[in-house]
């Protein structure tokens, strides 16, 4: 079952009086429960593609359907609703709320979904258990290591059990050991919860974990390689 369907996606950015074409006719389908990655050098368009799938940006041309919704046709409110309910994000620099505790950071998406306190608490503790951070609930991001911060970010992305998790260079700021821990955690969550993971990366450590490798070059899909199916 395809949960991301991309047809002839073009994305242009204005640059001075001209424009820069970041994506040049991408055709791509991602199925439920995939552990896939967009691989390519800087400027290949992988982050742009990830942002469009995440409804943070809109296509210049072509269609992008995420969970049956056309991203380009969504209003700001509808796009926010899609992100809130069905998408999880993991960023290179974690993007944790610095003044909030680990618990509060992970709880945040559930607050937006207006879950009651009891349900929130259970879901937050479950998410922290998945990433092994139950002993850090009261810590704040500045008190955590990079690996721990990224695990909090994973817990935050996973806590609402989203259909899709979009991870943009999640290991770029981590050492090898932490990278493997993080990737193993994500792979386990993918297996257990059947959550679709889509990475944007050029990190070998991540690439080795991917079940599907989609190579991008100059805004086009150069190669789409299925390593193993889920």
């Amino acid at each position: 079952m395809e949960i991301i369907e991309i047809k002839n996606l073009i994305k242009k950015f204005p640059v001075g009086k001209g424009e820069f074409v970041a994506l040049r006719g991408i055709d791509l389908n991602i199925g439920k429960g995939e552990f896939a990655g967009l691989i390519g050098p800087s400027g290949s368009g992988k982050s742009t593609l990830l942002n469009i799938i995440g409804s943070l940006d809109s296509p210049s041309d072509g269609t992008v359907n995420v969970l049956g919704k056309s991203v380009g046709a969504l209003s700001t409110r509808e796009a926010a609703q899609l992100r809130k309910s069905s998408l999880g994000f993991i960023f290179q620099s974690y993007n944790l709320l610095q003044v909030h505790t680990v618990y509060e950071n992970v709880e945040f998406p559930l607050l937006l979904l207006k879950y009651d306190a009891e349900k929130r608490k259970k879901m937050v503790m479950d998410a922290l258990e998945w990433v092994g951070l139950t002993d850090k609930v009261k810590s704040k991001p500045p008190q955590l290591s990079g690996g721990e911060c990224q695990r909090v970010a994973i817990a935050r992305a996973m806590v609402k059990r989203p259909s899709i998790v979009l991870a943009d260079e999640p290991t770029a700021n981590l050492d090898a050991k932490n990278s493997h821990n993080i990737l193993q955690t994500m792979e386990n969550l993918n297996k257990e919860l059947k959550t679709t993971f889509l990475f944007a990366t050029h990190d070998e450590k991540v690439i080795n974990y991917l079940h599907r490798k989609i190579f991008l070059l100059d805004g086009k899909v150069e190669k789409d390689e299925l390593i193993r199916s889920n």
Binding site: G54, L56, T76, R77, A80, Q81, R83, K84, S85, F89, F91, S93, N95, L96, L97, Q98, F108, P109, L112, L113, R156
Partner: peptide, 16 residues
């Protein structure tokens, strides 16, 4: 700014 972007990514509209 990162925090603002994060709020939007997590499901806030810019108006919110």
């Amino acid at each position: 700014q990162k925090e603002i972007g994060t709020y939007v990514a997590l499901g806030y509209t810019r108006k919110e």
